[in-house]
Design a protein around this nucleic acid. Sequence first.
DNA 1: CCTAATTCCTCCAGTGACTATAGGTTCAAG
DNA 2: CTTGAACCTATAGTCACTGGAGGAATTAGG
Lengths: 143, 143
Amino acid sequence: MLPIGKLSAATGVKVPTIRYYEQIGLLPEPGRSEGNQRLYDRAARDRLAFIRHARDLGFPLEAIRELLSLTDVPTHSCAAADAIARRQLAEVEARIARLDSLRGELQRMISHHKGGTIAECRVIEVLGNHALCQHDHAGETGF
Amino acid sequence: MLPIGKLSAATGVKVPTIRYYEQIGLLPEPGRSEGNQRLYDRAARDRLAFIRHARDLGFPLEAIRELLSLTDVPTHSCAAADAIARRQLAEVEARIARLDSLRGELQRMISHHKGGTIAECRVIEVLGNHALCQHDHAGETGF
DNA sequence: CCTAATTCCTCCAGTGACTATAGGTTCAAG
DNA sequence: CTTGAACCTATAGTCACTGGAGGAATTAGG
């Protein structure tokens, strides 16, 4: 049985984050010691490692909640898990595409930079005058 | 002189967001009508368009604040503006690299998916067992 | 066995960049 | 002159944490 600090060290999830996950119902309330300190078993550690890994892959907590609820019924079809992963992949690909175009514009902005004063600065100029850039950046920022 | 709704339509920045920018000191307090409604001039519109464009490029508000303070002294060297843009480019490139590796792992996860029950699900399995993935995801999530 | 350092507890506030809601006022069109 | 849209302020909520205050419990060293 691990106290919260050891669990944190074992999973790489910070202590306040573990308590936060408990607070929002992503982790069940663990047992307590006589002195009221949380004690975690192996199942809790596995669950937290799962959450950590999914977070690292960019899954939002709501998707993780859904994935966890799937694992609670192991005989259920895994089509839903597959769908969540595909959604996440599409999301990641959209972000990459978006960032690629931002990179292009930033690179153009910087490569035109010749020094001098703010009044002649290409960076400031491009930011101030949208017509100077090829980018359409429709609305959502991607961040 | 534009009321806030017209300014919003002209720049693509939502009304509450404009008021928020004023609140945090990114936009100066505009003049008011007799009935206490905000009225914006051309300078305000240009400044907001600048902010909008920089936000679209992913600059955080603090960087934008700095860029705006640079434009207030047009005779100053633009090296600082260049540095901010380069920092932003580096940030964007780091995010792209990170997302590329996530994409790889998600693709592997999905391509190994064969259907069946949750108990046999590759997606769930990879998420639960870090050893099954090549990805090192060191700590920061990139999101 | 005692002390000191560390870890733990709860609660509350803050982050970034908005977004939404409630409840009221002013403006412009018909 | 009335109606409805647009405006006002203030507050709270979003996501996923992070940090601090102030105090209790545990552990390691002497």
